[in-house]
Design a protein around this nucleic acid. Structure first.
Lengths: 235, 235
DNA sequence: AGCGCCATATGATCTAAATCATATATGCAA
DNA sequence: TTGCATATATGATTTAGATCATATGGCGCT
């Protein structure tokens, strides 16, 4: 099922772009055009077929990645073979930033859809930081924000009830996408795993929330009907 | 029970120290003596009584903290009043680093024991970074490591079975303390909460692991008897 | 020394979520 | 277009962990 590696034909790209592609990434929002353009100079485009594995634990860390199209899942495999999803990187998100200070990757990264990525090369990026204190400060800020975001994820996982977890996740998405109509980055099965529950429980609980007129699911779209009630789901 | 604030008499300090106190902090291990000494110049000593609250959500962020003695718990309170422990900061650990880029704290910090802290002042610290690219690079490395550490916590929480969580936590402690005989930073009740389970489940599961001759509990000490088996507890 | 509080500890019961089982819908591929 | 694989969906049963109850032990305070 999972290819060791897979590439797409460049011709299969939906859109041709020009200029500063990374500009649209929330994580880079505060960077100057010059910084962004400098980053884009040290990137390499990567096209991945759905199911293909980008890297595995122990692989030499080449840098970190920006998701231009598609979605990837980071996961580890326990000794007994159980997969634990660490993160889902959707559209306009970055992942594996910590690889800058590690020789190797420490988890699997697998494309959940056909995906287009930028690899931001490690050595070149570190040089950019070293030579530009302004940029270093920005990067420190970005990492600090990441720490805050991860703490939120931890909080989310600690909320034991499925409805609390799902509500928290939908609110997170709404904040990221800055809209009350959010798009699930990947299929529900993968989200269930990310939130540490079974598909069955996810579907059932989602249906409950829908019956209570708190949210409305329509394919990959989720409409938040009652934001206040949704926030109160944290028990 | 919880005081709004509480201080100890300086005379109650167990030890008088001199020189570079922060040198013994793993997180600062790679910093030069000069950097360390510069950091110590911008600290303020804080003494806290057990149960007192250092900061609450919304309080102006003064900086981050280093635990010289004692232990603190960071937690949030859900709308329904449930407390979620985000982190336990024990001896020689730091916390609230992300406050450098936030105007306010976003959780509660409560002393679980009488504690001695250094507050590392925000503005001064940011200046130190800005004026020293070497130091900035080190701080970026430290934040990156933090990101990795938080991801491990997420993985730990996703492991659903209590024995997997407890095993994972003991291994984490063993790695941090670099020994097969680890000391629990705080009482088990608090650890149970951190790991997202009830005290009862923690005690029971711990006893199981003890009966299976995998670990041995003796007060705050935990002896790892069979490291290999412990690692295999991740189901 | 004595009291009281809280951590530690364990049993009994209850319940929510996992598991097992299956059915329908949907998207992709031949 | 049909067919297969996979996502979505839901019911029945099982079970692990939460909850409730209660007991013991150790430490600090007066």
């Amino acid at each position: 099922m999972k290819n060791t590696f897979g590439t797409l034909e460049p011709s299969s790209l939906k859109t041709k772009r020009s200029g500063l592609i990374l500009e649209e990434f929330p994580v880079f929002a505060t960077l100057s055009k010059e910084h962004l353009s400098n980053i884009e100079k040290i990137t390499r485009q990567i096209l991945l077929k759905k199911g293909s594995v980008l890297f595995s634990p122990g692989d030499a860390a080449e840098g970190f990645y920006a998701v231009l199209d598609g979605a990837l899942r980071m996961y580890r495999v326990s000794p007994k073979g159980k997969e634990i999803t660490l993160e889902i990187a959707g559209l306009k998100s970055t992942f594996a930033e910590a690889s800058l200070f590690s020789d190797t990757y420490h988890c699997f990264a697998e494309a959940l859809k056909d995906s287009e990525l930028y690899l931001i090369r490690k050595a070149e990026f570190l040089n950019m930081i070293r030579e530009d204190i302004q940029f270093a400060m920005e990067w420190i800020r970005i990492l600090s924000m990441q720490v805050i975001h991860l703490r939120q994820r931890i909080e989310e996982l600690s909320l034991k009830s499925p409805r609390a977890k799902i509500s928290s996740y939908i609110i997170l998405l709404a904040e990221m996408q800055n809209s009350s109509s959010v798009t699930l980055p990947v299929h529900r099965k993968a989200i269930a795993t990310l939130l540490g529950m079974t598909q069955e429980t996810f579907y059932r609980t989602a249906k409950e929330l829908e019956n209570e007129r708190i949210v409305h699911f329509d394919g990959q779209k989720v409409e938040i009907i009652n934001y206040t009630l949704l926030e109160e789901m944290f028990e």
